[in-house]
Computed example of a mutant assay.
Amino acid sequence: MHNNPKETARIVSSLQRAAALKLTLAEDPYPLIAVVEACDTAIRAGNKLLFCGNGGSASDSQHLATELLIRLRGSVARNSWPAISLTLDASALTAAGNDFGFDEVFARPLSGLGKTGDVLFGITTSGRSPSVVRALQVGREMGITTVGLLGGDGGVARAFCDHAIVVPDFDTMRIQECHISLGHIILELLEDRLIGADR
């Protein structure tokens, strides 16, 4: 096996940096608990969770929505819970982009699918994605609880979030790694709270 010291150092450095970011987030768990409580309230009231993001964050949106709708942990038997990723429908996305502009690709379907009492997760590593910011703005206007999974300093998205969880870094890859970990933690705690109602 070829041993490249520079590659070895890069691997170690990347893993250490990712671990350090997660440990920083672990210093204040209460924002996560507040999000879990908002999601718990929404699901118990018959409402739903919605997710949106661009690029890798679009994949995270689909990933997290699927784990609510289908399954998070194979060891837990439960009902399907209502969750929608606003990134899924290519026809709706391209129609909204064509007819209203790309900034409206999530806000437009949200205005038809969302309702007061729902929870919207806007995922943006920069906190500045116009389409996500616009969705958060419209969600708040509709009485939807808005959650931001953000990066850097939170960007302009932070102002439209009822709950903002900010990964304090500007490296997109490291932020995305934290976002999916944060999402899994939120859903795992939510599942623990809700499974009693299913049994």
Rank of each mutant, 00 (worst) to 15 (best):
A96H: 05
A42P: 07
G151E: 03
V35K: 01
T116D: 03
I43A: 04
T146P: 05
D198W: 09
A42Q: 11
V76Y: 08
S14R: 13
P109A: 08
G127M: 03
L110M: 03
R71E: 11
T24E: 15
D40H: 15
L86Y: 03
L136M: 05
D28N: 14
L50D: 05
V166R: 00
G183I: 06
D40C: 13
G101P: 03
L32K: 05
S80A: 14
G114N: 05
A34I: 12
S57D: 10
Q137P: 02
R134A: 03
T87A: 15
C52T: 10
R10F: 11
I84K: 00
F106A: 07
R158N: 05
F121M: 09
G151C: 06
P130S: 10
C178D: 01
N98Q: 03
K48L: 07
I43R: 07
R10Q: 08
K48I: 08
S111A: 12
I175Q: 03
G46D: 08
A159I: 07
R158G: 02
I144F: 04
H2M: 10
A18N: 15
D192K: 14
A45F: 09
N98G: 07
S13H: 10
L15V: 14
V12T: 13
H163N: 04
D40A: 08
I180R: 09
S14Q: 13
T94N: 05
L68I: 14
E67P: 00
L113D: 10
K115S: 10
T124F: 00
F51A: 07
S131V: 03
R17D: 11
A77K: 08
G53N: 05
C52Q: 05
H179S: 13
D192S: 12
D162N: 09
K6V: 08
V76D: 04
A34E: 14
R134C: 01
T172P: 01
G112E: 08
G56M: 09
A26H: 13
S14N: 15
S181D: 14
G122M: 01
L149R: 01
L149G: 01
G148T: 07
R158W: 00
D28E: 14
S181T: 12
G152K: 06
C52R: 04
T145K: 02
D89Y: 02
L189F: 13
V147L: 00
I165F: 06
T124Y: 00
T146R: 01
G155N: 04
L25P: 01
S181V: 14
G151A: 02
C161V: 03
I144G: 02
G127H: 04
A92E: 10
I165T: 04
I70G: 06
R10C: 06
A157H: 00
R108H: 12
T24C: 12
D60G: 04
A42T: 10
A77Q: 14
G152P: 06
R78W: 14
A96T: 11
R128K: 13
V147R: 00
Q62I: 15
S85G: 13
E104I: 12
D60S: 10
L88H: 09
G56Q: 07
F51L: 09
A96M: 02
I43M: 12
G143V: 04
N3Y: 15
A34R: 14
R71L: 10
D28I: 07
G196N: 14
D99A: 01
A107R: 00
